[in-house]
Amino acid sequence: MEPLLRLKNIECYYGPVLAIKGVSLMVNKGDIVAILGANGAGKTTILRTISGFIEPEKGEILFEGKNIAGLNPQQAVRRGICHVPEGREVFDELTVAENLRMGAYLRKDRRNVSSDVKRVLEYFPALRQRYRQRAGWLSGGEQQMLAIGRAILSKPRLLTMDEPSLGLSPILVKEIFQIIRRINKEEGRTILLVEQNARLSLQTASYGYILEVGRVVLDNTTGELMENEDVKEFYLGIQQESIRGKKRWKRKKVWR
């Protein structure tokens, strides 16, 4: 079966830097796929390339079988790709209600929007109390919820999320990830997730890619990844009695 999204050997620049050096990945319909990696690995660049902000230098982005490389962000949204950006980026001076309305900006079926808004408010009861308030006055967690809710309202076939846990308290992070799982299960939305919180995203996703300085160094089902020694040590931070009796800083990652 043709996957929903397939990147073929993407190369792109972030400013003058070649940030993505030939990345290929696949997202199947109905899955949650996680991309893990340290700062500067190129995770955000990949997501921005998919949603049309960055044009790839080389390679193909196949979405539902069609190459969408080089489309502008508006066209990407029309095709059904919605991006939840890093750092929330809500419209500060608009109310929660108006923010959600902007999520459905391109939708033609205006009638169903209000019932969809209701469903979003069920996912995020905190937003219901703040429905008529300005988004700029919400807490960070509420703003993240709003950004996710706003994205769902565009009815995306692919939802890309950039660091939804950034700057949130551990309890809130757990809550957000639970809701991400619910959105995937109850609405059947395909989600591509970029995260630094490796443990939670491996628990949430079904497949994972590990990115280091612009290259995919490892990919597998998340169950397998969690068993991987390198992932355990460098991403999950599980200190083991070293097998080879070496100190941690002396150990090398196998994939290099």
């Binding site: 950006p85 902007m102 900006y105």
Partner: peptide, 17 residues
């Protein structure tokens, strides 16, 4: 509302299509 949204946050306005 889209005009207001654009003047507040262009990046997010692009994201909304």
């Amino acid at each position: 509302i889209a005009l207001q949204a654009t003047s507040q946050n262009q990046f997010a306005a692009y994201l909304m299509g």
